[in-house]
């Protein structure tokens, strides 16, 4: 039957329900397990092969040698496109993606982070992600 106001009942039915909008700053949003957030680096595992630098589409990661078999990762968070290719490319699982997504800064310089000490690697899990991708 063709008549106007077809969605009226739907609207009324939803009127007493709570909003579908996410109440973000007040309520923490659900972040999926596989979310690709800020990069993390486990210096002890890095062998300095620089495969991550080679594959990074946006030249966001730099691995520097800071001592004998010691490496630091410099990550430009403003360049990073959060694709996670470096995590896939790393042969030693020295890189991993955290679920940290609140990365906005007022000062651009703060977006350049240097990860060199084991203590820096926050959220670092002893094992890499359970679903280790191929390739």
């Amino acid at each position: 039957m063709k008549k106007p106001g077809k969605m009226l009942m739907e609207v009324l039915r939803h009127a007493p329900k709570k909003p579908a909008t996410e109440m973000y700053p007040h309520v923490r949003p659900y972040v999926p397990e596989r979310f690709r957030g800020r990069l993390d680096f486990i210096p002890g595992k890095c062998i300095g092969c620089k495969m991550c630098m080679r594959d990074c589409p946006s030249k966001a990661i730099t691995i520097n040698k800071i001592g004998d078999k010691k490496f630091e990762a410099v990550i430009d968070l403003d360049r990073c496109i959060y694709c996670g290719q470096c995590v896939d490319s790393c042969p030693k699982d020295a890189l991993l993606m955290t679920t940290d997504f609140e990365l906005a800064q007022l000062d651009r310089r703060k977006l350049k982070i240097v990860l060199k000490d084991a203590g820096n690697a926050t959220d670092a899990k002893p094992e890499a992600e359970p679903e280790k991708p191929v390739a």
Binding site: R34, G84, D88, E131, P133, V134, A135
Partner: peptide, 8 residues
């Protein structure tokens, strides 16, 4: 990814 997908 070239040759398949990245996540199962």
């Amino acid at each position: 990814t070239i040759g398949g997908v990245r996540r199962d």
